[in-house]
Design a protein around this nucleic acid. Structure first.
Lengths: 257, 257
DNA sequence: CAGGGACGAACTGTATACAGTTTATTTTCT
DNA sequence: AGAAAATAAACTGTATACAGTTCGTCCCTG
């Protein structure tokens, strides 16, 4: 089976948006252009490369990726179903920004579900599992600034909490919510919150060490809710303007394809 | 704006599958063929018209709906993202049957989230809300057999429980899970379970009447989990064969379009 | 008659062409 | 000049054409 590699990009309209895109095997191995595009766009959106409500022009995207509009459209449909973009028929597709309450509710769901997962996992914890958590805590401390590396480590801790829950479906549902809201949570991420989060992790760990699992679950729930509060606090500031595109930025002129 | 009405179906290959399809305004009002198709297919799958792992042939579907493959493909992409079908690149798209543990985990999520929603809503309950619940209970009693009408009434009760939760996002997430697993839960639905469920609803109602909300939440959680247990029990019977298509039923001959 | 290419039918995936919709611009009328 | 109507440009949506992949079938070889 021949390895499909995408042709070099033609247009530079979106160059900046996708430059941070990880061209790892995960992306390259996709079998169809549509799959590749869906990944690329999803990654870019999760990465915060697009402002809320920003318009996605099919022709521009097609030119950028040097493909026809068909796979672009299919990829956009997929993202639409995932809730990342919104399509207004015959009109346009925009990056769908979540409202504050949507974000907060999503975080609420995480809090409830993750707390449940922890309780479910806790009764099966082994010494190795706890060691692993300790290890991750230590590693997290080494990361001094808020960036992708910290996000990954942070999530590693959470995943480790649920490793023994024997609930892969719930975990992946939770993980998806996490990915969906991370781009918003990120904007509130200051160094202070970084430190706070690390402390909360450690407190959860301590409760687990003492086999006080219901307390650990409560702490975890609080920990997650703190993110929600941070988002709400930031967004309710009067001078807060979500990084969002204007309703209808004058359309550029792009030759139809 | 001209009202788009679909042309009558050409092919009869899928006629049976879509005959129960509700041609209500909800469906007819869709602006694009793709949107219409996504709804139609989703409804049919939710309705149990397709067996697990059944193959969806783009050409056949296109002929049935008398459209080209493009909107069919886009609709399938959307369903794929929704988890209703699975696409194997260059190969085929199949209706993705959930495994027993996936179903049970989905029900678990419902139990956890709905119980949370109830607790959140309970503190805001008014007398009218409780009356409404009572009313729904009565109406449910009138429906004697397990069918779409019962499912709707049943869900109405659940929704009424969360009406005051002020969490529309969580509610719709839960609703989606419900829709996703209903077709499996249905297969276990005997008259006996019908009665049991009605009783459980009434017990929850009674706890609410006594303002014993945490007990109501617990009862609700149990109530939902019962469905999960029923599914598991049925599927673990040695002679159980999920209504599912064979891995590769000899492909029919369909003229390419 | 079992195993393995080679071929071809039947699909899926992508590009291109065309149709229909929306929005911006120009023209017309008052 | 300003509002309304006509026109044009830019997109989106769908159909058709073509390219590429998979898999069954046939034929060959042993």
């Amino acid at each position: 089976m021949e390895q499909r590699t995408r042709a070099p990009f033609k247009s530079k309209a979106y160059a900046k948006r996708f430059e941070r895109l990880d061209w790892g095997p995960d992306l390259r191995e996709r079998k169809t252009i549509t799959d590749y595009l869906a990944s690329a766009l999803r990654t870019a959106i999760y990465d915060g490369q697009f402002a809320d409500n920003e318009e996605l022009n099919q022709v521009e995207l097609a030119q950028h990726f040097n493909v026809s509009r068909v796979p672009i459209r299919e990829a956009l449909r997929q993202l639409q179903a995932e809730g990342l973009v919104q399509n207004i028929a015959h009109h346009r597709t925009i990056v769908s920004g979540m409202t504050t309450s949507q974000i907060v509710e999503a975080i609420e769901m995480r809090a409830v579900l993750e707390s449940y997962l922890l309780q479910k996992a806790a009764i099966r914890f082994t010494k190795e599992d706890v060691d692993r958590l300790r290890q991750i805590c230590k590693e997290t401390d080494k990361i001094k600034d808020y960036g992708p590396r910290w996000v990954v480590k942070n999530w590693e801790f959470h995943r480790a909490l649920y490793a023994r829950s024997e609930s892969p479906t719930i975990i992946s549902a939770v993980e998806r919510i996490h990915l969906n809201i991370e781009r918003y949570a990120r904007r509130t991420g200051s160094g202070k919150r970084l430190h706070e989060a690390a402390n909360e992790h450690r407190r959860i760990l301590r409760a687990i060490e003492k086999s006080n699992f219901s307390r650990a679950a409560d702490l975890l729930q609080e920990h997650i809710r703190h993110t929600g509060e941070a988002v709400r606090r930031q967004r309710e500031q009067p001078n807060f303007t979500a990084e969002s595109a204007l309703p209808r930025p004058r359309r550029g002129r792009i030759a139809s394809r």
